[in-house]
C-alpha cells in the first residue's frame, strides 16, 4: 500500500516537473519574436529659446540638445546685444524629440507656483527684473526685462527650478528644488 502511494506521488512529482519544463521551453520560444516598443521621452526639454526684444529689434539666445541625456552637448547660440538697452525677454521651452514639437512652456505656466527661473548675470549684463507672477504673486520668469551696460561681454545663466521654495530671496541656494534647466550664454554687448 505504502509503496504504491509513494510511487503515485513520484509520478505526480515527475508530471509537475515535466510540465514546468515544458512551460519553460514554451515561454522561451514565444518571447523570441517580441519586439520592444520604442520609448520617446515626454518630459524632456530639448530646447530653450530666449527672445529679447528692444526698440532696435530682436535678439535670440538658444540652447538646443536634441539627444537629451545622450552624449552630445547642447548647441548654444547667442545674438549680440546693444549696449545700455533694456530688452523685454520671454522664454519658450520645447521638446523637439516629438513631432510636432511639444510646447513645455504651457506646462510651466500651468504649474507656475511650482516653477521659477533664476538669472545670474556677469560683465556687461547688468540687471534683470521679473515681469510675471504666479497665482500667489511670486515671480516665475517666463517674462522678464534685461538691461545691458556698456559694451563688452557678459554671461547670463538661466536656471529653471522645479518645486523651489516660494517665495525665496532670489538665490538658488535659498530656492532649493530640482534643476530642470541650467544653461549659460556668453553674450557680446556692442
Amino acid at each position: 500500500m505504502k509503496t504504491s502511494t509513494t510511487m503515485k506521488r513520484n509520478k505526480t512529482l515527475k508530471t509537475v516537473l515535466a510540465l514546468s519544463l515544458m512551460a519553460t521551453v514554451m515561454t522561451s520560444c514565444s518571447s523570441d519574436d517580441d519586439t520592444p516598443e520604442v520609448v520617446n521621452e515626454e518630459e524632456i526639454i530639448t530646447t530653450m529659446t530666449v527672445t529679447l526684444t528692444s526698440a532696435d529689434g530682436t535678439a535670440t539666445l538658444q540652447s538646443q540638445d536634441l539627444d537629451g541625456d545622450g552624449p552630445d552637448a547642447p548647441v548654444i547660440t547667442a545674438d549680440n546685444l546693444t549696449a545700455n538697452t533694456t530688452y523685454t525677454g520671454s522664454i519658450e521651452l520645447l521638446n523637439e524629440t516629438e513631432t510636432p514639437a511639444e510646447d513645455i512652456t504651457e506646462e510651466v505656466e500651468e504649474e507656475a507656483d511650482e516653477h521659477q527661473f533664476f538669472f545670474g548675470l556677469t560683465g556687461s549684463l547688468t540687471d534683470v527684473t521679473y515681469s510675471d507672477e504666479d497665482g500667489d504673486g511670486n515671480p516665475v520668469g517666463l517674462e522678464f526685462e534685461l538691461t545691458t551696460g556698456d559694451a563688452g561681454s557678459g554671461t547670463i545663466t538661466i536656471t529653471l527650478r522645479h518645486e523651489p521654495t516660494k517665495p525665496n530671496d532670489g538665490t538658488l541656494a535659498d530656492a532649493g528644488g530640482e534643476t530642470d534647466i541650467a544653461q549659460t550664454f556668453t553674450v557680446v554687448v556692442e
Binding site: S28, S31, E37, V39, E41, E43
Partner: peptide, 23 residues
C-alpha cells in the same frame, strides 16, 4: 536556466536595462 527581462515602456523613460532573454 531560462531568464527573461521585460522593461516596461509605459514609464515614458528610456530603458536603463533593456529587454533580454538569457539561457
Amino acid at each position: 536556466r531560462y531568464q527573461t527581462n521585460f522593461a516596461n515602456p509605459d514609464t515614458g523613460v528610456r530603458r536603463l536595462i533593456p529587454d533580454y532573454d538569457k539561457y
